[in-house]
Design a protein around this nucleic acid. Structure first.
Length: 419
RNA sequence: AGCCGAAGCAAGACUUUA
């Protein structure tokens, strides 16, 4: 029986869930009574592939065979629903659970994460309170989830409270817990507090890992404190925490944003010498760096280089190039890159079209801008307020107040709030 | 009873008077 379970698990992990199911249904069930462990593994296999239909079907099979679902079953199902972002279904599922197989700390944490993801912050917090009330003790993962959820919802203050609550509860924090808090503080522009926490970590016998370092490196970079960012990367090397591609990505982006792309380039060499290959993010930063410096030939060369290295440029990359070329007045080339984008099967997104609209506006080509907006709306895209702002500004500058008003009305109709 | 489920980090468009 253990052998079968081990085999099934191995198949699931290898992405061969169909075989796993066959082994379970046709070989194992003839010899051994069905058990939750096996079903959980197979259900997970299908859910990981996005096939929730089969997942739920197996769940029904399981129940009809009299196999008791357990907390892990719920965890697997909730994880799947979490990835789909289907909070309502998840809540309905939890309601349908009978009391003999309760939720545990993992399934609760999964559901809390899902609710935060669906921006249902109040519900997430209520669920957290509920689990405590029911005697299910939150662990470090639960707290990390809650702190992260609160911070990403713009409630760092409450994130900090939850973090303190974690310490008070006697829960031993791990680097994950600190990292989400540090990240939240950095993004809320409370860098000093983030540094403080980072320094406290080491003292607490919880040394920062590569992600924690990277988070703070990014914090320094976003605050324009590049010297400190660089020093921190040196420190992590010294401490034996190897920087990752993301670490270098943050550092390189920081320099690029400050128009110091020439200092960023040696860092690419440095990362390569450490065995790290620049990825699409790194190229994105570099291309943006050249764009900000008005050096579009070099930006385009970088795109060629990434192609030759087998990296596929995405909408970010193309949008940066399209924008940069337009800004320096190279309209025909800009358009050519937009066409190349489409021809290469890269789908322009709302930012791409927003960029194009903005560029038309800047160049006084308002009718073109207006028609792109309508195209966006027709295809169901939701332009951000800044796109409407750009259009209104463009019409105003040409003295076409009525057209600007028309834009404003469209904006209101789309439910887009003015900024 | 054999370790089946949960958490963290980076790139693109508006607004600048120098």
């Amino acid at each position: 029986r253990f052998t079968y379970n081990a085999l099934i698990l191995a198949l699931v992990r290898g992405g061969r869930e169909k075989e796993a199911r066959r082994v379970m249904e046709q070989e194992m069930l003839g010899t051994f009574p069905p058990e939750a462990f096996t079903y959980n593994a197979v259900i997970q296999g299908f859910c990981d592939k996005g096939d929730l239909t089969t997942g739920f079907k197996l769940l029904e099979d399981m129940k009809s065979k009299g196999v008791q679902t357990n907390a892990t079953t719920h965890g697997v199902i909730l994880k799947a629903l979490c990835q789909k972002g289907d909070a309502d279904k998840a809540l309905a599922y939890v309601k349908s659970i009978d009391s003999s197989s309760e939720m545990d700390v993992v399934s609760y944490s999964t559901l809390i994460k899902l609710l935060f993801k669906a921006r249902r912050v109040t519900q997430a917090c209520n669920l957290f309170d509920e689990m405590v009330k029911l005697g299910c003790k939150p662990n470090a993962v639960t707290y990390a989830t809650v702190v992260d959820g609160l911070c990403k919802a713009g409630r760092v203050d409450r994130g900090l409270k939850a973090f303190e609550q974690m310490l008070d509860s006697g829960c031993v924090p791990n680097p994950h817990c600190y990292t989400v808090m540090i990240d939240g503080l950095c993004k809320a522009r409370k860098l000093e507090k983030a540094i403080e926490l980072f320094e406290k970590m080491a003292k607490q016998d919880c040394s920062p890992d590569a992600v924690t370092y990277t988070t703070l490196v990014d914090g320094f970079c976003k605050a324009g404190r590049l010297g400190e960012a660089r020093k921190l990367v040196n420190l992590m090397i010294q401490k034996g925490k190897d920087p990752t591609v993301v670490t270098y990505g943050c550092l390189i982006d920081g320099f690029c944003k400050k128009c110091r792309v020439d200092e960023a380039l040696p860092m690419v060499k440095e990362m390569e010498s450490r065995g790290l290959k620049p990825n699409v993010f790194v190229y994105g930063s570099l291309i943006n760096g050249f764009r900000l410096a008005g050096r579009m030939d070099e930006a385009c060369n970088m795109l060629t280089e990434m192609n030759s290295r087998g990296l596929r440029p995405n909408a970010f990359i193309y949008t940066t190039i399209v924008d940069g070329l337009s800004t320096v007045g190279r309209m025909a080339e800009s358009q050519a890159y937009f066409e190349a984008m489409v021809n290469n099967g890269c789908v322009p997104d709302a930012v791409t079209y927003g960029t194009i609209i903005n560029q038309f506006c800047k160049h006084g080509n308002m009718e073109a801008a207006w028609s792109v907006l309508n195209m966006m709306l027709k295809s169901g895209m939701k332009p951000e307020a800044l796109v409407y702002n750009s259009l209104m500004d463009g019409f105003y500058r040409l003295g076409k107040v009525d057209r600007a008003e028309q834009v404003y009305k469209t904006m209101a109709k789309q439910g887009c709030k003015p900024t």
